[in-house]
């Protein structure tokens, strides 16, 4: 029983295998970009936006509000990264209602890729916000003896991000597959509805955790803040 979409290869061009993960990722990307283009060219400057524009404004504003609450600062440059994480995962998970669709997030390659993006983005935002020295000083807080544990923590939380999302989505797919073989109609529908809820929650968790990691990198740790305060 193979549940990873990576194994489903549609074509192979020059040694590059076009598997289901990449294909459905492109479909999700196409949907998101198409909707964005529609809104982009139909943006109303008046006081009454279109329904689609209003819906997207609600979504974007809610993303910005969540970022603002977590980072305690203006969303600004975080919006594109965190918002895209949420929208990509949410749409990927929501499309599971389509027959034959396999969410890219059920692939460990996808979740690992997203987690690597977070792993890279955290130090980039931290360095951009605080400078290289101040950021690296985080790893020796509150004492230099904590350096290995901080590094391990950094790697483990990235691994946790990837495994959490992959596990939830893959398990949902596996459970649906098993239930289909037992009860063809009733349980799959219920599980699909539960899978939608789980998918939205996972998208929210992934994006929020990424923002938390970024926010923690852009602000000094508690011990460093206390020391700075004492020095003042």
């Amino acid at each position: 029983m193979e549940f990873s979409p990576d194994a489903t290869v549609f074509a192979e061009v020059g040694g590059f295998a076009l598997n289901a993960t990449i294909l459905w990722t492109w479909v999700v990307m196409a949907i998101l970009v198409a909707i964005s283009l529609v809104v982009r060219f139909q943006v109303r400057e008046g006081f009454v936006p279109s329904r689609l524009q209003a819906f997207l404004e609600v979504v974007v504003e809610e993303i910005r509000r969540q970022i603002r609450e977590v980072s305690e600062s203006e969303p600004g440059r975080f919006t594109a990264f965190v918002g895209t994480l949420f929208l990509f995962i949410a749409v990927s998970n929501a499309l599971t209602v389509l027959p034959g669709y396999i969410p890219p997030t059920a692939s460990l390659s996808t979740t690992a890729g997203l987690a690597i993006c977070v792993l890279v983005a955290v130090p980039l935002y931290g360095i951009a916000e605080r400078g290289l020295t101040a950021y690296l000083r985080n790893y020796i807080q509150p004492t230099p003896f904590m350096l290995p544990f901080n590094v391990i923590g950094e790697a483990s939380r990235t691994l946790a991000l990837a495994i959490r999302l992959y596990g939830n989505m893959m398990s949902g797919t596996v459970i649906v597959g098993i239930l289909i073989s037992i009860t063809p109609f009733l349980f799959p529908v219920v599980m699909q509805l539960l899978g939608l809820l789980t998918g939205m929650i996972q998208a929210y968790i992934f994006a929020i955790l990424a923002m938390v990691y970024i926010a923690s990198a852009t602000r000094p740790r508690l011990g460093a803040r206390k020391g700075a305060t004492d020095a003042d």
Partner: peptide, 13 residues
């Protein structure tokens, strides 16, 4: 894909 999507959404959304 994710980086491209982030850039596209940043530009168009």
């Amino acid at each position: 894909n994710f980086l491209v999507l982030a850039w596209l959404l940043h530009r168009f959304l």
